[in-house]
C-alpha cells in the first residue's frame, strides 16, 4: 500500500473511532467521559447512564457501523457487477425488496431477528435478480437498468404500503423504517443481521481479485479463468445479503451504497483489495457521523438519519447523472 493511501486509511479510521466515541456519548442525554468509563466498568447495572449506554447507545452505534459497512460494500459490488456507477442497493430496488420482505414477515407475525434478517435477504436477492435478469435478457443499457430499478422500487414500496394499509398494527413500518433510522434498534434484532453482514464482508474480502476481474468485462474475465456467470450470481447474492441484513434493522436507508463507493474510488483507487475495506470503514464512519448529526442538529428533536442522507444523497445522485451525462450514449 503506498504512503498516501495509508494516510487516507488512517485518517478515516481515526474519524471512525472519533465517531464511535461521540456516538456513544452524545444525544438527548450526554454522557461524560467519567460516566462512560463507569458504564463500561460496571455494565448495565450502573444506573441510568449505564442503561442508556448499554441499551441505547451501544446497539445504535453498532447498528450504524454494520449498516454503513454493509450498504457501502454492497454498493461497490453492485456497481462492479453491473458495470454501472449509478447503481446502488437503494436505487436498483434491492433495499425496497428487503423492505417488502420485512413488511410481509411482520404482517405474518414473524418478528424474530433471524426471521427479519433472513426474509430481508431473500427479498433483496429476488429484487436484484429480477432487475439484473431482465436487464441481461433485454440487453438493456445502463440507464435502462437504473430506470428498471426505479420501477421495481416503486412497485415494491407500493406493495409494502398496501400491506401496511391492510395490517395497520405492524410496528416495523414506522416512518423511521421507511426512510431509514436507528431509533428502535435492539441487540436482539441486531445480532442475526450483524452475523450475516460480517459473514458477507469476510466472503467479499477473500474475493477481491475476482471482483477486479469482473471490472475487466465478461470476455476478459472469462479468458482469465473466472467462471463469470457463477461469480456474478455469488456477488449479487452477497450484495443482497449485506443490503438485506442492513435493511432489516436500519430500514430503507438510501444513498450510502452510492456516495461512499464514489468517494472511496477517488481516494484509494479502484483495486478492490483496498476499495472494499476502505468502503467498509468509510461507510461505517459516514453513517455513524450522519446519525450523530441527525440526533444533535435539531435538538431536542431527532430526525431519522435517512432524511439527512437523502438531503446529501439526492444532490449527489443528480451530480453523478450530470457528470455521466449522455451515459446512454456511452453504453
Amino acid at each position: 500500500m503506498n504512503k498516501s493511501r495509508k494516510r487516507i486509511f488512517i485518517a478515516v479510521a481515526v474519524l471512525l473511532v472519533l465517531g464511535i466515541i461521540l456516538s456513544v456519548s452524545l444525544g438527548a442525554v450526554c454522557l461524560t467521559p467519567a460516566q462512560l468509563v463507569n458504564a463500561i466498568k460496571n455494565g448495565s447495572g450502573s444506573g441510568l447512564e449505564g442503561n442508556i449506554f448499554w441499551y441505547v447507545r451501544v446497539p445504535r452505534t453498532i447498528a450504524c457501523l454494520l449498516a454503513g459497512a454493509g450498504l457501502a460494500v454492497s454498493g461497490v459490488v453492485i456497481q462492479s457487477v453491473l458495470s454501472n456507477k449509478l447503481a446502488s442497493p437503494g436505487i436498483i430496488g434491492v433495499n425496497a425488496g428487503a423492505g417488502f420482505a420485512v413488511t410481509v414477515c411482520c404482517a405474518l407475525g414473524a418478528l424474530s431477528g433471524w426471521a427479519l434478517a433472513g426474509s430481508a435477504f431473500i427479498g433483496a436477492l429476488l429484487a436484484v435478480l429480477l432487475v439484473v435478469g431482465a436487464a441481461q435478457k433485454m440487453n438493456a443499457s445502463r440507464t435502462t437498468v437504473i430506470l428498471g430499478g426505479v420501477a421495481v422500487n416503486s412497485f415494491l414500496n407500493a406493495g409494502s404500503e398496501a400491506i401496511i394499509t391492510l395490517f395497520p398494527d405492524i410496528g416495523v413500518m414506522s416512518s423511521d423504517f421507511r426512510v431509514g433510522g436507528f431509533t428502535s434498534v435492539t441487540m436482539t434484532r441486531l445480532l442475526p443481521a450483524g452475523i450475516l453482514i460480517l459473514i458477507g464482508l469476510c466472503v467479499l474480502f477473500t474475493l477481491c481479485n475476482e471482483l477486479d476481474l469482473m471490472n475487466l468485462g465478461e470476455e476478459t474475465a472469462q479468458g482469465l479463468g473466472l467462471p463469470v456467470k457463477k461469480m456474478r450470481t455469488i456477488f449479487l447474492a452477497v450484495a443482497a445479503l449485506l443490503a438485506g441484513a442492513s435493511v432489516s434493522f436500519a430500514g430503507l436507508l438510501g444513498f450510502v451504497g452510492l456516495i461512499i463507493p464514489h468517494i472511496a474510488r477517488r481516494l484509494v483507487g479502484g483495486e478492490n483489495r483496498h476499495l472494499l475495506p476502505f468502503c467498509a470503514i468509510g461507510g461505517a464512519a459516514f453513517v455513524v457521523l450522519c446519525d450523530l448529526a441527525a440526533r444533535l442538529v435539531f435538538q431536542p428533536y431527532e430526525i431519522p438519519v435517512g432524511i439527512l442522507m437523502s438531503f446529501i444523497g439526492g444532490p449527489f445522485f443528480v451530480f453523478l447523472l450530470f457528470k455521466n451525462k449522455g451515459g446512454h450514449r456511452r453504453d
Binding site: 458495470s83 477486479d212 471490472n215 475487466l216 468485462g217 470476455e219 476478459t220 472469462q222 479468458g223 482469465l224 479463468g225 473466472l226 467462471p227 474510488r265 483507487g269 479502484g270 483495486e271
Partner: peptide, 21 residues
C-alpha cells in the same frame, strides 16, 4: 474455466478500462 485459462489466453476486441494500476 481455470484449466482452460491455463491453456489458452484471450485478448478480446472490446475492452473495459479499469481503475487499477
Amino acid at each position: 474455466s481455470s484449466a482452460l485459462a491455463q491453456r489458452i489466453s484471450y485478448l478480446p476486441q472490446g475492452k473495459k478500462v479499469p481503475d487499477i494500476t
